[in-house]
Design a binder for these strands. Structure first.
Length: 441
DNA sequence: TACATACAC
DNA sequence: TATGGTGTATGTA
């Protein structure tokens, strides 16, 4: 009997354990996959419209993606990140149990110093075109208006109009997945020349308010309107920004959104809106207090998740935890996060951009034929030589980047003694980096 | 210098 | 059928 009972107990325990283990594995996989979805930037929570059925959208995206090599690769990366987070968490818990009195005082001093250096004299405006590519397509083809539409291809979308965003369609989403979310979605191909043309037009308008404006991308500009305000005392920052946006609309029939702030710029009121943050420390800190850290430019999916795992979700919480961040992160990350937590952005707009690299990359279907790879190398070296010639550049470091069929990215780099710029030389050096093929065969 | 990772758009 | 292209910064070895 005893034996039997014992056996039974053991059996029960074992089966319970097994069951628990299975549950754990199932749950863990489920959580992992959710994390992967989030990592893929397909989480509709971020940016865009709020009134989307997030659950439904995520489910569709998951069903389409889950078996793919792309998803598998993302999952591997997610696992690696999870390990890193575990380490950081461990250190964090340890630090949390320390008094850290000295460090806390030190952090207070650092913050006070930075606070007293805060420059509130400059009025910086960040102008951002609404769904730029999509809006340009609607402009040139009004029939597309009020219909769900995205710019790109079945493989990849650049932008979606607001009608399409209601279905969860987003930039950086493959078109074929977008079509599952919205079967009436119209996908139009990109026309970069046209976007550049309008971008140029928009920058000319902006130059009237600050000739030293700084383009941040094809559809985004930073400008300093302090001088303009001094020269035109009857204007307020809001009024300048309104007029500027109106002028853009008048001349291009495209809408822009803007953030006005002394040192932190945000696009809280999109589309076709603007938000002003007064040049006043209290208002800046109040704004930051509940601002999700992921909204800060420079904090992407990885950093956001790392911080979230430490229980830090807002800039206010970030500020409160800076003592620990200083110990847990690398100096430059710490410096960046410290500035972000205080809302210290740029107060100087500089547009002395100097190119540091130039590149060409092409994605092609899976192959392991050397000839095809060499043909590709030839193709990109031609395009690169062309671009290099246009800008009168030369270089002596050549990097070859390879994406495998499992979406792993490998780079191999070779630095040579003299500067080159001709296609033949680029191709030759590219071929020299051939041990990249060895990985294959 | 070589390579990887993160980030923005 | 199918998950891009260009450029920058930074950490690590």
């Amino acid at each position: 009997m005893d034996n039997n009972n014992n056996n039974k107990n053991i059996n029960n325990n074992e089966s319970n354990n097994n069951k628990d283990n299975l549950c754990d594995i199932d749950d863990k996989n489920k959580i992992d996959d959710e994390n992967v979805l989030y990592r893929l930037s397909l989480n509709p929570n971020k940016g865009g419209l709020q009134n989307v059925d997030k659950e439904k959208i995520n489910k569709i995206i998951y069903e389409v993606s889950k078996g793919s090599a792309f998803f598998k690769n993302a999952k591997e990366k997610e696992k690696a990140h999870f390990e890193k987070i575990k380490e950081i968490k461990k250190k964090y818990l340890f630090l949390k149990n320390q008094p850290m009195e000295y460090e806390k005082q030190q952090m207070k001093n650092i913050m006070n110093k930075m606070e007293s250096d805060r420059d509130l004299s400059q009025y910086i405006v960040h102008v951002d075109m609404d769904a730029f590519y999509a809006s340009v397509e609607e402009l040139d083809n009004p029939e597309l208006k009020n219909k769900p539409m995205a710019v790109g291809s079945k493989s990849m979308l650049s932008t979606a109009n607001y009608e399409a965003r209601k279905y969860g369609v987003r930039s950086a989403m493959p078109g074929y997945i977008a079509l599952k979310l919205c079967k009436n979605l119209i996908i139009v191909p990109t026309r970069f020349e046209r976007y550049h043309e309008l971008s140029h037009q928009i920058r000319n308008i902006i130059a009237n308010y600050d000739p030293d404006y700084c383009p941040a991308s094809i559809d985004e500009v930073y400008l300093n309107i302090t001088n303009f305000l001094n020269d035109n005392p009857n204007y307020t920052p809001s009024k300048v920004t309104e007029e500027l946006r109106e002028e853009i609309y008048k001349q291009t029939r495209l809408t822009a959104s803007a953030g006005i702030a002394p040192n932190i710029c945000s696009d809280m009121n999109k589309p076709n809106g603007q938000t002003e943050l007064k040049n006043c420390t209290d208002e800046i800190l109040k704004f930051l207090k509940d601002l999700p850290i992921g909204k800060v430019s420079g904090i992407g999916k990885v950093a956001e998740k790392t911080l979230n795992e430490l229980g830090i979700k807002t800039c206010g919480e970030l500020k409160e935890n800076m003592v620990y961040i200083k110990e847990l992160f690398k100096p430059s990350s710490y410096q960046f996060l410290l500035s972000a937590s205080l809302g210290l952005g740029r107060t100087k707009i500089e547009n002395k951009w100097k190119r540091k690299s130039i590149s060409v990359e092409r994605t092609f279907s899976n192959t392991s034929e050397i000839q095809k790879l060499e043909d590709k190398l030839h193709e990109i070296s031609c395009k690169l030589a062309n671009d290099v010639k246009k800008e009168n550049l030369k270089g002596k470091s050549v990097t070859l980047k390879l994406k495998t069929s499992s979406f792993e990215i490998l780079t191999r780099c070779l630095t040579i003694s003299k500067y080159i710029y001709q296609q033949e030389d680029l191709y030759k050096v590219g071929k020299k980096v051939k041990f990249i093929y060895i990985i294959f065969f």
